[in-house]
Nucleic acid binder design. Structure first.
Lengths: 211, 211
DNA sequence: CAGCAGGGTGATATCTTTATCACCCGCTTT
DNA sequence: AAAGCGGGTGATAAAGATATCACCCTGCTG
């Protein structure tokens, strides 16, 4: 099996050299280039066409995220595994949205790094456990936001009443509106949730976190 | 250090027994209960108050996702590590949105499972590399959706023109509207992207994937 | 000083969304 | 047969969003 070809991008020379040395000792990895900044990284990736790029976030000049964008602009789009000390949400989510295939913290063991590179090389993604929860939370927040923009506040009122088992008449009394108003809101809810009746609407609403 | 207390939930008796045996041999883990279905799982978790619950997705009756909801309904909310063969987006994203702290495929090595349990017990999250890419893609899609609802189609037209370096006058000619119309669109863009001028708007638009 | 650029305030018209309600139909229960 | 239920069509009014444009101010350049 051909070794995975890797480019290492980090502005700290000592760290980079040490990492290159470490990776060079691994038979299934082959370091084919290195760069100390984003601009250089684009050139090196263009020349070497590696399987995986190890990329720091914090670098002077072009930071890691800008480098990801530059890869994209240059239509390179290599598989990138971020290797950084930053656990900041904006760096983590920013890197993911900018196309990174993985995010590993620099405190990872050498063997974990090796495994991560191999996974990324074969198209999978890897997240350090320390930051994976942040990614899951970001996904949950995105879903919450998108879901809560789905129904108007009145429709959410009606759905909560349905979840309590109230009939149309009871909901009308509860919300001080006519039954016909309630029925119209229910009609819109069924349409927005893409269901056929109020029972399904309640189930779907629970599934989406609306109730 | 006290061993991590684990409950195993899986409908396949042979698999469950084998897993319990495997985990019982690990000194830093302690299996304190097991269940073959969701209803039983809620009872066992209530009784044993484990640090981590290993939970399958595919189970007859209440499946894994419904069991997560039942945990929440019962205000138990244990740390749950899904352990399943399912790589389906709806199971994966569904479990995450329902509160799972991790998602591991059953093809994982015993040591990887042990590490994952320990990570989840300490509040981190773990995803199998085989499914992590799906999570990152779901996050990207959620972001795309939310971003593309941010600007109206006309505003997106104007932003793309700005990105090409056109002036207000040139954009007006290009879109067959007056300069004042273009300026109004630009004003709304600046406000929606929370920036102060068109240069920042273009940078932010690129960062958000609008251009 | 005039022209050109960007940024800003305010206005109008149209379209869409939200919230309201009347009425109709079919089914079930009393 | 009547009442009550759920699901459906259609209507109106108000609010908000979208798209349009006029006008003003400031700074820079020729």
């Amino acid at each position: 099996m051909k070794p995975v070809r890797v480019v290492v991008v980090d502005d700290h020379a000592l760290f980079r050299r040490g990492l290159v040395g470490l990776l060079s000792e691994m038979p299934d990895l082959q370091v084919v280039g290195e760069a100390e900044d984003g601009l250089r990284a684009v050139q090196v990736v263009m020349e070497t066409r590696p399987d995986v790029v190890l990329l720091d976030v914090n670098m002077p000049g072009m930071n890691g995220l800008e480098t990801l964008h530059a890869f994209h602009k240059a239509q390179l789009d290599p598989r990138v595994l971020m290797l950084t000390i930053s656990q900041k949400d904006e760096d983590l989510i920013g890197a993911i949205l900018a196309g990174a295939s993985g995010y590993l913290l620099k405190n990872a063991e050498p063997e974990a790094l090796r495994q991560a590179i191999l996974q990324v090389a074969s198209g999978n993604s890897v997240l350090s456990p320390d930051v994976a929860a942040q990614v899951l939370n970001a996904l949950r927040r995105a879903q919450d936001s998108s879901v809560h923009n789905l129904l108007s506040s009145r429709e959410q009122d009606v759905l909560r009443c349905l979840a309590r088992g109230l009939t149309t008449t009871q909901i009308a009394v509860e919300l001080f509106v006519s039954q016909n108003t309630v029925k119209t809101h229910i009609r819109h809810i069924l349409k927005k949730l893409d269901v056929s009746n109020r029972t399904e609407a309640v189930a779907k609403g629970m599934q989406l976190g609306l109730i």
